[in-house]
Write a protein that binds this DNA or RNA. Structure first.
Lengths: 153, 153
DNA sequence: CTAAATTTCATACTTTAGTATGAATGCTAT
DNA sequence: ATAGCATTCATACTAAAGTATGAAATTTAG
């Protein structure tokens, strides 16, 4: 049990502190470059242009890679739900629950079983919900609800 | 008329060739840096480390900026439609059209009017489409189609 | 506590959705 | 040419969805 915990901890550190390790490696690489360039210049066997070009390319690539990592991580297309709109429409808690289940593609019977009520109850909720959303059908209700951002895409 | 065309052409060149101009400016900047660094080294009034550090920072920033520009341009949250999947499912053109109209919340009757065919034709398409999508209802078909990314969100 | 709103359920009814079957037409590729 | 597929349409049927009405129990807010 403890073994598992330790394993998990190491894994966690690895995942979270990955960026820090990357930066540490980067700093070391830079220092190495400094030394290399110094010796090269002193020895006179490498032109200053070559060194600068190499450094430029390296950091250009590093800039792109890091930027891509950061953008990639926060690229969560999570739809924010407009709870205020739900209240504005006057949708009750139960009506909203039913709406969500409809959007999942469930039938009235299936929703009834899932929410532990009778099918006629669901029908009542659906009917009231449709009026409040100004929809004629459940499919239209889904479309409208997604447009109003009251259910996830 | 010709004037407008010329104006448009210049605008077009400006828009499309912007990147090229940017790179041209970049190359000039690099050449200038080369000259500057050379003179500095010869004059001995700037250390090699400083020059390298400056170059590194400059290109690091350039890398980030260029990357951000590119990502920003193609960062349209437009859901790409998986046309290959549509073929894999064996959906015909008409069946797919009907599916899209269903997702818009239309009834069979409304779809029939929109596509200038009878309601029974739509029913046939819907029935075949449901089998191919392995859905029991049209609402479920919408959900599955969105998951498979064959219709826009 | 009481009035209003929500949730629940039922019954009866109408409308829409979906299935099954059969058939005619047109397009396409071998 | 012809076999296969897509499209079209019809009829008859079953299933699901949605409406209307009434009513009881529960929750919530003033």
């Amino acid at each position: 049990m403890i073994c598992f915990q330790i394993k998990f901890q190491f894994y966690y550190i690895y995942r979270v502190k990955k960026t820090i390790f990357t930066f540490a490696a980067l700093v070391l690489a830079i220092l190495a470059l400094f030394q290399l360039s110094k010796y090269s210049v002193i020895a006179g066997d490498t032109s200053i242009e070559t060194i600068i070009a190499i450094i430029a390319v390296i950091f250009f690539v590093i800039g792109i890679v890091i930027n891509r990592r950061i953008l990639h991580k926060k690229k969560k297309p999570t739809q924010e739900i407009n709870y205020q709109k739900i209240e504005e429409l006057g949708l009750s808690k139960r009506e909203y629950e039913v709406l969500c289940q409809i959007a999942m593609g469930l039938s009235n019977k299936e929703i009834a079983e899932k929410l532990f009520v009778s099918e006629s109850t669901i029908k009542t909720h659906v009917s009231n919900m449709l009026v409040k959303l100004d929809a004629k059908r459940r499919t239209q209700a889904i479309q409208i609800a997604k447009e109003l951002q009251i259910i996830p895409l």
